[in-house]
Design a protein around this nucleic acid. Structure first.
Length: 574
RNA sequence: GCAUCGAUGGUCUAGUGGCAUGACUUAGGCCUUCCAAGCCUAUAGCCCGGGUUCAAUUCCCGGUCGAUGCACCA
């Protein structure tokens, strides 16, 4: 067994956190099953995410189909941008972008050629890698989206979504109405996304089917101050900006307030979600020493993005892994869907006081223009409105002909009109989380081995709110009525919504170790004092310390321990 | 996808052209008054498909999965 990754993957397989999918048929790379404890842990992480984004921020959750029709992904750019024409050099086996080779040799319009055309162009060209003439090569499309078809017969093309974000964009108009036509507002989605990775080789880090939690926050383009910014204004965390990367200097430890003031972070919204993300990741058990926020360099940032940061988590196995992306995507997505769908994706913003504007209006005398110009009357009227003629008539060029329009054919009115507001396309702030990567990071960061009485103790130091099982209940001895009392206690805890597990198999020490390995934060033992005094021992996973507490206070006590409003160290024995 | 290497109970592992080792785990029992103790018993395995052979877990071919390097990574 070499490194921590192997140890963790061994543990999560054995103890029912994560399994290879459809193992009995031989599994396929890039697909995993979450087992009993893994599903529980994943749900608790998702629920913590919901607590931050839905409950606290007030961005409601929506749920959209995982299959989308082609138009959606034409607009998003995934049909085009996610697909490349590729070929393989028959000599050196190098994978190559077919259009790039042709363009490199001066072939015009290579990027718009069909695969067949490209193949015929390529057969006389040399491979840029090994210089051999390519000869007959097959040019194929590779798109990272899984394609499917919708309905029988002449089917519509469908794609499994490569990200959850598009649902929030396609629902934009409905969401806008839901939030009663005012900015800012946001919607979130937690769900599966699919990318047909060429070779997913990094276990849980690179999956073909994975869970994303994304928020799309729609804001006024000129108002990027977050209404709750003070909440994180003094939040201090390390930021690795573009300058620090280029100059190879360490991350700057700074408050969000300073980061925005100094221009390191583009605006309050981005800074706010950087801090919130840091807060959230640490809450679920990511080690803050192994967490950094790195700004995208200009050449890796999408051209439309105003600012973009990745939360990167350090893994002993994989190095710095990008786990969360936080971007100011401006109006790119909404405008793209506007163009593709022909619908309007804008918000009407009323002015505080309606603006009054003087405007000159030309009213054409259609009764006179009609008979005079017949078919051209409409063009003349339009030209007049554009030209704004004076009181003496005007000469206009209509369809290549000079035409004099005498003043009796129109009236010029100067008037004051009221403009109540304007339509704007909101900008989008997008925090996007890779849930599976977060789960892996938490597992890796919470895994520990230590020697206790010359025995190795493996323990997952999961935060109590994330641990799949919250409390274990044991009878000290498997007789003398203790099992009955313990079973009853476990049932009472479960009735209060606490995930409790009863275990009476083997020595007490073994049972503690079993729970340590799956991260159960607390264990309650019913012993010979329990029948007499109604007290039990409560054991803390991390310190292995025990205190004696009244059994009837356990539901309340455990709830506050799991929530974190009480710490074990603060408990005093009864 | 290419190249190299690997795959034996749940886990780690020995070994083999002819009954497949051992340890741990798990389950049941005995014992045990708080951190993987001990004893007895039980469950459970040669990655999948094809070929060679009287006989294949073992040899050969193909595949799957994993590790490593290369390529790919919106």
């Amino acid at each position: 067994m070499s490194d921590i990754y192997d140890k963790i993957m061994d543990l999560v397989r054995r103890r029912g956190f994560i399994w290879p999918a459809s193992e009995c048929y031989g599994s396929v790379a890039g697909f995993i099953d979450y087992g009993p404890l893994g599903s529980m842990m994943k749900r608790r992480i998702e629920d913590t995410w919901r607590e931050f984004y839905v409950v606290r921020e007030g961005y409601y959750e929506i749920e959209c189909p995982t299959i989308g029709q082609e138009d959606v992904f034409i607009a998003s750019g995934h049909v085009k941008g996610f697909s490349d024409k590729m070929c393989q050099c028959p000599h050196c086996k190098e994978y190559l972008r077919a259009d790039h080779i042709a363009e490199g040799k001066g072939v015009q319009g290579a990027s718009t050629m069909s695969a067949g055309e490209l193949a015929s162009v390529l057969c006389t060209l040399p491979c840029p890698a090994c210089e051999e003439v390519l000869g007959e090569v097959e040019v194929f499309h590779f798109n990272l989206m899984f394609q499917t078809s919708i309905g029988p017969g002449s089917q519509r093309k469908g794609y499994l979504r490569p990200e959850t974000a598009q649902g929030m964009f396609t629902d934009f108009q409905r969401l806008l109405r839901f939030y009663r036509d005012s900015l800012p507002f946001g919607a979130v989605q937690i769900g599966k996304s699919y990318r047909n990775e060429i070779s997913p080789r990094q276990g849980m880090i690179r999956l073909r089917e994975f869970t994303q939690a994304e928020a799309e926050i729609f804001v006024h383009p000129q108002e990027k101050n977050h209404p709750f910014f003070p909440r994180y204004a003094e939040y201090r965390m390390p930021l690795l900006g573009i300058a620090q990367q280029q100059e190879n200097t360490p991350a700057i430890e700074t408050t969000m307030h300073e980061a925005v003031e100094s221009g390191l972070v583009a605006n309050q919204y981005v800074a706010y979600y950087l801090a919130l993300t840091h807060h959230l990741l640490v809450t679920i058990g990511v080690n803050p020493q192994k967490l950094r926020f790195r700004q995208h360099l200009p050449d890796e940032r999408a051209h439309y993005a105003e600012d973009c940061w990745d939360a990167e988590i350090f893994s002993e196995r994989f190095g710095w892994v990008e786990t969360v992306g936080i971007a100011d995507r401006t109006d790119y997505d909404l405008l793209a869907h506007e163009k593709q769908s022909g619908e309007r994706f804008a918000v009407f913003i009323p002015y505080e006081t309606p603006r009054r504007e003087r405007r000159v209006r030309v009213i054409a005398n259609m009764g006179a223009l009609g008979p005079r110009f017949r078919g051209k009357a409409k063009s003349v009227a339009d030209a007049l409105a554009e030209a704004v003629p004076g009181p003496d008539g005007i000469t206009l060029r209509i369809d290549g002909e000079e035409v004099f329009i005498s003043p009796d054919l129109y009236q010029v009115k100067e008037e004051e009109i009221e403009i109540p507001g304007e339509e704007i396309t909101p900008h989008v702030i997008e925090p996007s989380y890779g849930i599976d990567r977060m789960i892996y990071a938490v597992l890796e960061h919470s895994y520990a081995e230590e020697m206790v009485n010359e025995e190795e103790r493996r323990v997952l130091r999961l935060p109590p709110r994330i641990a799949p099982i919250q409390v274990a209940v044991f009878p000290l001895m498997n007789r003398d009525g203790l099992p009955e009392i313990a079973t009853d206690l476990a049932t009472r805890l479960k009735a209060k919504g606490i995930m409790a597990e009863y275990d009476d198999s083997g020595a007490i020490g073994r049972r503690y170790r079993r729970q340590d390995e799956v991260g159960t934060p607390f264990a309650v033992t019913v012993d010979y004092e329990t029948p007499e005094s109604g007290t039990v021992t409560l054991r803390d996973r991390d310190s292995m310390q025990q205190v004696r507490v009244r059994a009837d206070t356990l539901p309340e006590l455990l709830r506050s321990l799991v929530e974190g409003s009480t710490t074990f160290a603060s408990l005093s024995p009864v």
